[in-house]
Amino acid sequence: MAEAMEVVPEFGDVRDEEQLDWGKLAAYLRGKIPGADAPMTVKQFRGGSSNLTYLLRFDDREWVMRRPPFGPLPVGGHDMGREYKVLSRLWEVFKPAPRGMLYSDDASIVGAPFFVMERRNGIVIKNREPLPVELGNDPATFRAISEGFIDTLADLHAVDYAAIGLGSLGKPDGFLKRQVTGWMGRWEKAKTREVPLMEKLGAWFLDNIPASPPPVLVHNDFYLHNIMLGAFNHGDVVGVFDWEMSTIGDPLVDLGIAIGYWRDKSDPPELVMTSYGEAHTLRRGFMTRDELVHRYASRTGRDVSGIPFYWAWAHWKTATVVEQIYVRYVRGQTTDPRFALMGPMAPALAFAAAQVASRLGFKE
């Protein structure tokens, strides 16, 4: 098994290639968010692999600022305006959502649109890193984390999105078809080598799109490493992050993504290897995928019999997501050493997607 990646601190000094005009940002924020009249210091969060996320400190006040990564960006991705719109409203009815405080599309300030949100404090399980030591190794803790994780997704899908002014966030009609065709296009733009299985799967998904249940507010990237756990009650989800792809659509897309990132002991070795020795959910106490799906169904009352389609689609989509990250490293747009290890992931995820889709008749 590949060696696990080194433990990365929550934040540190800003990488040289990801420095911004901090003086201009400080001047812009002055008088717009609480505390911003004090001198500003900046650190950079290390956990994410997509948008650039910075910790802004003004004496005893802390805020989080997010902007897209440098270099060419996929159409529709890294949408700071969308993320801000959701977080400026969702926090009122969904407690794990941090409050969005300010948004600007003036690229002259930090080189791209950006927004500022409140900082949440707790424990984050980082992808491909050892479990935080604060969590211990008690199976009961891991069971509580699993329950809190899937219950939070169910609670999100119960939000009356129209009542908080998010009814125009997406177009539910044809949502799944647009997801498939959109990610097919993104794969073509990002791929660093040919993976014929990706094109074959995309065509199969288009031919086998199921009927969707009534639409909900979809996070569109809901998985264990995008949530924050309570520092004392580890089963309490105190933060859900990375909302830039959220929309109104099929709730089973979120469930498929959630279980697609989850690892089970029955997974093919190639899929487990993508965790680089840190497949957290293989530890005793974490729920299995089947248990997650059953609990979600019980809590929401939704029919989940068609979940293999969404699960396979999630693996296929994730193959493109990691390729989009990897190609930034290949092009020299980032020096983050984590991204250098992502080369083998897209083929492994395509293979996993094909195995799940074969349950529904897909043939390689």
Rank of each mutant, 00 (worst) to 15 (best):
A279M: 07
R120P: 01
A231Y: 05
V86D: 06
V253A: 13
R66E: 03
P344M: 05
L166N: 02
F70Q: 09
G230F: 05
T141E: 07
E3A: 15
M245K: 03
E3R: 14
D267E: 13
Y326M: 10
K24P: 10
E17V: 11
I123Y: 05
D160W: 14
D250E: 03
K171W: 07
G285D: 01
F309K: 07
E10V: 13
Y310W: 09
A2V: 13
L176I: 09
K265T: 00
S108H: 05
A38C: 10
V8N: 09
W311C: 04
Y296T: 04
F222R: 01
N121A: 15
T192R: 04
A279L: 03
G285F: 05
P210G: 11
D290V: 08
S108M: 08
D151I: 02
D264R: 04
L206A: 07
D250Y: 11
A297Y: 02
M117T: 00
V110S: 10
H315K: 13
P132W: 07
A162W: 04
H225M: 12
E62N: 08
K43E: 10
P98M: 01
G136E: 00
V237D: 03
L131P: 07
S358E: 12
G260W: 05
P98L: 02
N127Y: 15
N137E: 10
F175M: 01
F286G: 07
Y261E: 10
A350G: 09
G185T: 07
A4V: 08
D105Q: 04
A312E: 00
G343D: 06
F94A: 11
H234P: 13
D236Y: 10
P344S: 01
V14W: 13
F115L: 08
I150A: 02
I209E: 10
G165D: 04
V133K: 14
D13K: 15
P210W: 11
A357E: 00
Q333N: 11
V218Y: 02
T274H: 04
D13L: 15
P130R: 04
V253Y: 14
T335E: 12
L25V: 13
G35W: 06
W311Y: 15
R99D: 07
D254Q: 06
R61F: 15
G185E: 10
A346N: 07
A279G: 14
N208C: 15
M345K: 03
S49I: 11
G285S: 08
L131V: 12
P269T: 00
S212K: 04
P113R: 01
D160L: 11
W183N: 10
D173R: 15
G170W: 08
E244V: 01
D79P: 11
R331T: 06
P196G: 05
A36I: 08
K85A: 13
S246Y: 08
I109F: 12
R359A: 15
P268N: 00
E278R: 10
V8I: 15
P172C: 03
L20A: 13
G332R: 04
L56Q: 01
K43A: 13
G343Y: 06
L197S: 11
R283S: 14
L135A: 04
H157R: 05
Q19H: 10
P34L: 13
F205T: 00
P69Y: 01
M198V: 11
V159Q: 11
E129V: 09
M198I: 01
R299H: 09
L20C: 13
Y310S: 10
V110R: 06
I150E: 03
L169K: 06
G136Q: 00
Y54H: 05
L87V: 14
E118F: 14
V272A: 14
A312S: 15
A312F: 09
I164E: 06
M40C: 12
G23W: 01
